[in-house]
Amino acid sequence: MDDLKELFAKNRPTTLTFDCYGTLVDWEGGAAKALRNIYGFAEQLVSDDVLIDLFLELDALVIREGIFPYSAVLQIVADRIAEKLLGSPTPELSKAFPQSLPSWPVFAETNEALTQLSQHFRLAIISNVDDDLIAGTLTQISAPFDEVITSQQTSTYKPDRPIFEAALRKLDEEPGRIVHIAEGLGEARPATALGMKSVWVKRSKRSDDGSKAIPNANAPSLMAIVEAAQSSLVAPHQIKAGK
Rank of each mutant, 00 (worst) to 15 (best):
F68G: 01
Y39D: 05
V148T: 13
Q153H: 02
S47L: 08
L123A: 09
I76K: 11
F97L: 08
E112P: 00
P98D: 05
S127W: 03
A60I: 07
I126H: 05
S142Q: 15
I134E: 01
T137V: 15
F121N: 04
L54C: 07
G87Q: 11
Q140I: 08
I125F: 01
P89R: 09
Y70T: 11
Q152E: 15
T110N: 04
L61Q: 14
L101M: 13
A82W: 06
I141T: 05
F41K: 01
D49F: 06
T137K: 02
L51E: 06
L58E: 12
D49V: 10
N37H: 06
D59I: 00
N128E: 06
D146V: 02
I126V: 15
I63R: 14
I134K: 00
N111T: 05
E92Q: 11
L86D: 07
D131Q: 11
E109D: 12
L56W: 09
V106A: 12
E43T: 13
L54H: 05
T139M: 13
T154S: 10
V73I: 15
D132T: 13
L61A: 15
P91E: 12
F145P: 03
V129T: 15
Q140M: 11
P102K: 01
V129M: 12
T139Q: 15
L86W: 04
N111L: 04
Q119M: 12
P144V: 08
S88V: 14
V50R: 12
I149C: 03
N128S: 14
T110L: 07
L114F: 09
T139D: 13
A42P: 04
I67F: 04
I76A: 03
L93A: 11
S118K: 10
R122H: 04
T150Q: 00
A96H: 13
S88G: 08
T110V: 09
A124E: 05
E112W: 06
I141P: 02
A78Y: 08
L93M: 14
D53N: 11
V50P: 01
P69W: 05
G87Y: 10
A72V: 12
D48P: 04
A42F: 02
T154K: 00
T154Q: 13
S151L: 03
E147L: 13
S47T: 14
K84E: 15
I126S: 01
Q152W: 03
L54N: 09
V62M: 06
S151C: 05
I125Y: 01
A108P: 10
D49N: 09
E109A: 05
I67Q: 00
I76R: 10
T90D: 15
S103I: 00
N111W: 03
G136C: 03
F107M: 04
L86F: 14
N37I: 00
